[in-house]
Design a binder for these strands. Structure first.
Lengths: 190, 190
DNA sequence: TTTTAAATGTGATGTAGGTCACGTAAGTTC
DNA sequence: GAACTTACGTGACCTACATCACATTTAAAA
């Protein structure tokens, strides 16, 4: 499937646009390929874009002072990713974004998103609902963090995104769960 | 300050509406007082409204199978609260909402919000940005959870919302931080 | 003002998960 | 295909925080 069709199908789940409207929307996206390991956003960067994954898998993550990595999100096809704090408030990135596998993405500038939201009411509706869902998911993950132990969270993650098991190395899964790789490794020893 | 002025000042931070538009928006809100301890949303309820705090302090929280409480949010004046998962997806509440102090709130139905977002583009813009900010804050809290210990998170919370220290009992702060009340109590023993 | 309940402090002890250290396996790169 | 890097497993030990138990202080209710 082509980039345009993937985005169109994704957006059609939330709003309906005429073909002309969608063409206009799509004209603001650019497309790009990345290689496994390539960095899209590095902490300290100025962040101008958000990214829509067509193919492959990205990760957004934070590195603390002890160089420990914490993964905020694995971004699979039809997921959006960026450092939203930096993007929205024009601050320097504190979150990194890079490629776990070779990846194909569309990207849209903050400026163009706001312009499009302004020009096409339905587009603003789309982005409101995208974030609404993200917010609810983030609250849910926060609760799971407070409530459940590492094993429970691991099973929850795999139940929600079974594809991750084959694509993503275990130490990255650990960094998403907020446990050490040793602990994750020990969860299923017998 | 009157309810109407409080809401107007709050909304004016994000969008500009004509007085007519704001009057129309405001006409969809209802106002209500609650007593300390009163329950606004209980787990299992159908959730039709979101709440805008004029005065007092609410908490939204989850109770797990062991009856342990986890606080998602302390809602102070000009904050919004609800069980957004339930509200947005028309599901039964899993989150509770009640009053830490006597409280005065405005409330708006899900249906009316969607109607207003549809009728007034700027209103949709407002709600998109409200959620954008909520999403970023939630991500930030998640990172703090993974990265920092209880003492650090406690200081972070008090730095961000100093008012909480006087209003909210310590065992509720503990339930927000995700530690036992005993641990919180011991953080500052000497 | 008395009674009852809610909030807080603190000792003793248990445990999930962290850290360090080392070894093996499996991909990458030249 | 040798050299190097990345992923993963596992033992030994450590630590932050949980849980249980009980005392005390503060606030609400009668």
């Amino acid at each position: 499937m082509q980039a345009k069709e993937i985005l169109q199908a994704h957006i059609a789940k939330t709003i309906s646009l005429t073909d002309e409207q969608f063409d206009y929307l799509f004209s603001h996206f650019k497309q790009r390929s990345f290689k496994k390991g390539q960095v899209i956003i590095a902490a300290g960067d100025t962040v101008d874009y958000e990214y829509f994954v067509l193919d492959g898998c990205l990760k957004s993550f934070y590195i603390n002072d002890d160089l420990k990595m914490f993964i905020l999100q694995f971004a699979m096809p039809t997921w959006w990713a960026s450092d939203y704090n930096a993007l929205y408030s024009n601050a320097k990135a504190t979150i990194n974004l890079d490629c776990i596998t070779d990846a194909e993405v569309l990207y849209l500038s903050n400026e163009d998103r706001e312009k499009l939201c302004n020009e096409i009411h339905q587009v603003e509706h789309f982005f409101r609902w995208r974030t609404n869902r993200g917010y609810v998911a983030s609250q849910k993950r926060l609760l799971s963090f407070m409530n459940n132990d590492a094993k429970h969270r691991y099973e929850e993650l795999l139940a929600l995104y079974p594809a991750l098991y084959n694509i993503v190395p275990k130490h990255l899964i650990a960094a998403y769960l907020g446990v050490s790789r040793e602990t994750l490794s020990r969860l299923y020893q017998h």
